Simulated assay, not measured.
Amino acid sequence: MTLHDALKSTPRLPLDEDGGPVFETPWQARVFAMTVQAHDAGMFEWTEWAEALGKELAKDGDGSVETLGYYDRWLNAFETILRSKGVAAAGQLRELRQSWDAAARATPHGEPIELKR
């Protein structure tokens, strides 16, 4: 399966007129790229990814959670698949997300966000 075919099979992925993904902010492009790289590294099949993303997107329709943006759901699905494959533990992902959130809040608008080690 080519990347173009994979993108077409990805649930609700926003695409431009040329069939490329559309991002509103840089972090969305980064999490997209990390997902593609994880797939290319053999961590999961794209059909597994599409299923995980579809399950995450379905949560919006059941009324059990607040509605999140598409790439917020994408990130949740990516974290879920990383945990299920044993690539990262839930605590590691939670701490990393909290660190990024804190760094984003501390960074002036227009400046690159840097995660301190």
Results as ranks from 00 to 15, higher is better:
108 P>V: 08
50 A>L: 02
37 Q>I: 08
92 Q>I: 10
116 K>E: 15
104 A>S: 15
99 S>E: 14
64 S>K: 10
29 A>Q: 14
109 H>P: 08
45 E>C: 05
73 R>Q: 05
19 G>W: 10
90 A>E: 14
15 L>S: 05
39 H>Q: 12
20 G>H: 15
88 A>E: 02
59 K>V: 08
114 E>M: 08
53 L>A: 06
5 D>I: 10
72 D>N: 10
76 N>D: 14
28 Q>F: 02
10 T>W: 02
31 V>Q: 07
112 P>T: 09
81 I>K: 01
54 G>P: 03
88 A>K: 01
63 G>N: 01
53 L>R: 00
65 V>G: 02
67 T>C: 07
39 H>C: 11
26 P>D: 04
7 L>H: 05
18 D>N: 10
84 S>R: 13
42 G>Y: 07
72 D>E: 15
18 D>A: 12
1 M>K: 04
35 T>I: 05
70 Y>H: 07
22 V>T: 13
78 F>I: 02
37 Q>R: 13
84 S>K: 09
11 P>S: 09
85 K>Q: 00
62 D>S: 11
5 D>G: 04
15 L>N: 03
75 L>I: 07
9 S>N: 13
102 A>W: 11
64 S>W: 01
23 F>L: 12
13 L>V: 03
113 I>L: 06
89 A>M: 11
67 T>M: 03
103 A>E: 10
115 L>G: 07
74 W>H: 10
74 W>A: 06
72 D>I: 08
106 A>F: 11
26 P>L: 03
76 N>Q: 12
112 P>R: 11
78 F>E: 01
60 D>Q: 07
71 Y>H: 04
69 G>S: 12
62 D>K: 05
30 R>M: 13
64 S>R: 09
109 H>T: 14
60 D>E: 11
42 G>D: 09
41 A>P: 01
115 L>E: 11
82 L>D: 00
77 A>Y: 01
24 E>D: 14
81 I>M: 09
18 D>L: 12
26 P>F: 04
35 T>F: 00
58 A>E: 07
24 E>I: 06
7 L>F: 10
74 W>Q: 02
64 S>V: 09
18 D>C: 03
56 E>N: 05
106 A>G: 12
38 A>C: 02
61 G>R: 03
116 K>S: 14
102 A>G: 13
79 E>Y: 14
94 R>S: 15
27 W>N: 04
56 E>S: 11
111 E>T: 13
40 D>V: 12
11 P>Q: 06
102 A>F: 13
10 T>S: 08
67 T>I: 14
62 D>G: 06
49 W>Q: 01
15 L>F: 07
98 Q>R: 15
85 K>P: 00
39 H>M: 12
110 G>P: 02
33 A>G: 08
8 K>C: 12
114 E>Y: 13
36 V>M: 06
35 T>Y: 00
96 L>K: 13
108 P>H: 06
91 G>W: 05
105 R>E: 15
90 A>K: 09
62 D>H: 02
6 A>M: 10
103 A>R: 05
61 G>Q: 04
87 V>Y: 00
91 G>C: 04
95 E>R: 09
90 A>Y: 13
3 L>H: 05
9 S>H: 09
111 E>C: 08
77 A>V: 00
